[in-house]
């Protein structure tokens, strides 16, 4: 009997609901403030470049004259610094992570691009 201390826990685990999420059949539940990926509302952006200066991974490129805002989501470390420092609050942190891809592509937003 002294050897089966853990038996109760084992039996309980067999009949309990699994502790893991059955991903990918069930979706992953994120918290409200999970830092997944950076998204921009390009219409509000004034191309000041604060986010570019704040980024520790140099993932953001801002062209003031050409009115483009570019991010390399595979360089981004999801620190949230750009979101904090944006004066117009046009950047936000989405809870879903960047989807895996075969190539490290960059996402370019132009001031006239219609938002999807």
């Amino acid at each position: 009997m002294a050897y089966l201390h853990f038996a109760r826990n084992v039996l309980a685990s067999m009949f309990r609901h699994p502790a893991t999420t059955e991903y990918p059949l069930a979706p992953r539940q994120y918290q409200n403030i999970t830092r997944g990926k950076v998204e921009i509302n390009i219409d509000d952006c004034i191309f000041c470049g604060m986010c570019m200066r704040t980024c520790p991974a140099d993932a953001i490129r801002v062209d003031r004259a050409g009115k483009t805002w570019e991010i390399n989501p595979f360089s981004c470390v999801q620190c949230g610094g750009c979101v904090e420092h944006c004066p117009k609050k046009c950047l936000k942190m989405d809870t879903n992570y960047t989807k895996p891809s075969e190539k490290k592509t960059e996402m370019v937003f132009h001031a006239d691009t219609p938002q999807t």
Binding site: I33, T34, V77, C79, M93
Partner: peptide
């Protein structure tokens, strides 16, 4: 597995309060 199951609850606390499970920033 039982120890790490308990650890998941702590990681959930981290995600709720800081936004990340392992790297808090």
């Amino acid at each position: 597995m039982s120890s790490w199951r308990m650890r998941e609850k702590i990681l959930d606390i981290f995600e709720e309060t800081t936004g990340g499970r392992i790297i808090f920033s």
